[in-house]
Structure formats: C-alpha cells, structure tokens
Design a protein around this nucleic acid. Sequence first.
DNA 1: AAGTAACT
DNA 2: TGCG
Length: 216
Amino acid sequence: MTLDLFDGEGVEPRRETIAEGAVVLRGFAGKAGPGLLAAIDLVASQSPFRHMQTPGGHTMSAAMTCCGELGWVTDRRGYRYEPRDPVTGQAWPRMPELFLKLASEAAAEAGFENFVPDACLINRYQPGAKMGLHQDRDEQDFSQPIVSVSLGLPIVFQFGGPRRSDRPVRVPLGHGDVVVWGGLARRHYHGVLTLKAGDHPLTGACRYNLTFRKAG
DNA sequence: AAGTAACT
DNA sequence: TGCG
C-alpha cells in the first residue's frame, strides 16, 4: 500500500475551515497530479468532454464528462444522474482507483469516514469559463459529503449559505487543493468565478475540477 | 436548474 | 440584487 500518494498522509495536512462543515485541504492532491491527469485523459477518450445545455437553453461554459456508476447530465429536460453517457450511449467509464482513493482519503481527512462515491463529474475550465452559484441537490443521499479537487490553473471558489442570497466567501484555489463539505453545509450554494488566462506546467491553459458524490 | 442581463 |  502506497503511503505517500497524497499530501497529508502520515502528516498533518494544511487544513483551512472556510465555513461550518466546509474545509480546504491545501495541496492534498498535488503529488498525484500527473496520475490524476492521465486518468482524466483515459476517461475523456471514452466519454469526451462536451458543453451541456441548461434547462433554460443556455450552454454551460465549462466542458464536462463523467465517470463512475452515475454521471450528472443537464439538457432542456433538466438536471439528473444517468447510468449511461447520452453522447456515446454507453455506460460511463469506470471510476479510476486513484480517484476513489483520493476521494475517500480526502473525505476522511475532513471527518467523513467511509466515503464511497458512485459519481465523479469532471469539469474542464478554459479562460472565460465559470460556474454560477448553485446547490448540489440532484443526489439521493445528502448525508454524504462533496469532495471537489482542483487541478491546473488557479481560480476563485465561492462558498455561500443555504440561500442564494447569502453572501459567499471567496476562496482562491490552486493545483491540488481539495474542498470537502458536508453536514449542514452539504446543500450550501457554491460556484467559481471566471477563469483567468494562464499557463500551468501540467495542464497548460486550463483547470480541471473533479467533483465526487454519492448520487444513488 | 449550474444561465445572462441590468441595474445600483 | 432580483429575476421567473
């Protein structure tokens, strides 16, 4: 068993509380960056990144794909989880073991033991892409946390409260940072500001985000 | 609905 | 901030 895949294993990770029930593990996934990016490429070779439509007919600025038993999709019919990729008609690619291990260990570091996600949404942000404030509320089990992994270019994360009108805190996130939220914070609004242009040694001009959930 | 626009 |  490898003991040093992730920062914070065997030592105290740099942990920041951004709200009650929400923490950032600084750099936790940084060492695994190359392996995580290779796994993203493998997933995307089977289920390509695509720009989905919101129910209102707008095109999302972040390109998305999924892996795991369930994938999050949106189109004019609404938001939901699907066992198959609508683009390929096939099951979503299986969740890489490295993803499962990262999600589980990050959740444990944040106080959520035995987290076993069945869905991983992979978002790719290029300059100009953003994600407006929203709640994750399409899952069956709100007792399980959300684990969100940042790779590549930095971005500003917003974490608000249970109402959209609650003013969010702004948290700069960099490569390898992992945000975990659950409990009371599980339904809180969150999003990211517009990605600014840049160049990252591992990802070039983009940022990837892995969002792990227990959806079913 | 994870969207934009139009204000202050 | 309010929108629908």
